[in-house]
Amino acid sequence: MTNAPHPYDALMNITARPPTVFVKGDGAYLWDDSGKRYLDFMQGWAVNCLGHSPTIVADALAAQAKLLLTPSPAFFNGPSLKLANALVANSCFDQVFFTNSGAEANEGAIKLARKFGTLYKNGAHEIITFVGGFHGRTLATMSASGKKAFEPLFEPKVSGFPKAQLNDLDSVKRLISSKTVAVMLEPIQGEAGVWPATDQFLQELRALTQERGLLLIVDEIQTGMGRTGKLFHYEHAGIEPDIMTLGKGIGGGVPLAALLATEYASCFEHGDQGGTFNGNPLMCAAGLAVLEHVATPAFLKSAADAGLFLESELQKLSARHGLGEVRGRGLLLALDLKLPIGASIVAQAFSEGVLLNSPQPDALRFMPALNVSKEEIADMIECLDAILTKAGAARMVA
């Protein structure tokens, strides 16, 4: 007689998870099945832009669920039309295709660029991406990513993604050939440890792509929807890309993402792109509620102010403990630990009821809700300060 399987075993073991089971969320906090409360500075990797279970999203879902879940993507529906028009009105883009995940949006961006190359650039198909970039986990988006850990996986990769160095325009120029159709990048490389493209680099890259007749694709899945203090990060540099992808925060916690393009770049023909659940009214109703809230000047200013406060507190913490720089913008920040102690700090913080993220062994990444309060930031800093104090004392003893 075999032992009964553990309930965790029914899920594929694709990542290391603590045995904790979360059952409730509200704003900046999560509760597990034992009743323990956690202050969340990950928020689903920048997904819950308004915190856990925000009322406006819950109400939008409940109201739409009573009306229409999905009529099939073969027909128009009201929420997708409203959300698409709102995105167009708030950006430099003309058309929107909704998807279920950021990786799917990036896959669509790759397809759109290659279609553009087929139609207008003699079959050019290569898309220059960047070392350290992360664009998703489909086969094409893993190939487009510059993540070292992906290199040996699922060979053969999709070809056509030469890698440049972030903030090095010459490295981009060297890769441009008759096969090149586009350049694709994250304005801030989140998974690599929160490494920003400078505004000057983005401006020079936009000028270069226009000069060479190439599309510029910005992956704003992590930086979009107010995360860096403006609705979209490209606004900081004062540029207008040809294609943008959104995900994570656009749904406020539900699976929603989007591919946006200018009229110039929108070249899909019937049958080129689709998806059973893409643009369904339930998810789009949630997205519309999020956008209408986040896009207001007052909200964006409050998020930017919270980002400045968090950055200042992290800089003070770094100075106290002899750590490195604070990188990023708005409420997407990283603290350079100088040592590979990120995983240990994350584990200690978890035991203390604070959720942190270490995308690289020597860095912590902070992605709180955009409406995080100064008090919640102060509580996180206090917890982290205590952990770093213990770590410093332990090193001195050793």
Rank of each mutant, 00 (worst) to 15 (best):
M1S: 01
N3T: 04
P7K: 10
A10P: 00
T20S: 09
F22K: 05
A28R: 14
L30W: 09
W31Y: 11
D32G: 04
S34C: 13
G35Y: 06
Y38N: 00
M42Y: 12
A46P: 01
N48S: 04
A63D: 10
P71G: 11
G78I: 14
A86C: 03
A109I: 15
E126Q: 07
T138I: 13
S143K: 01
S145D: 09
G146L: 01
A149I: 14
P152A: 04
P156V: 13
K157H: 11
L166P: 02
N167E: 09
L169V: 15
S171F: 14
R174L: 10
S177Q: 10
K179F: 12
L185T: 15
P196L: 03
A197G: 07
Q203H: 01
R212A: 06
D219W: 00
M225E: 04
F232A: 12
H233L: 00
Y234F: 07
E235P: 06
A237I: 12
D242G: 02
P255Y: 10
D272R: 00
N280C: 13
P281W: 15
L282I: 05
M283E: 05
V290Q: 12
L300F: 00
A303C: 06
Q315C: 01
R329C: 12
A334K: 06
L335R: 06
L335Q: 06
I341Q: 06
Q348V: 15
A363W: 01
P368L: 00
E375S: 08
E376H: 09
A378R: 13
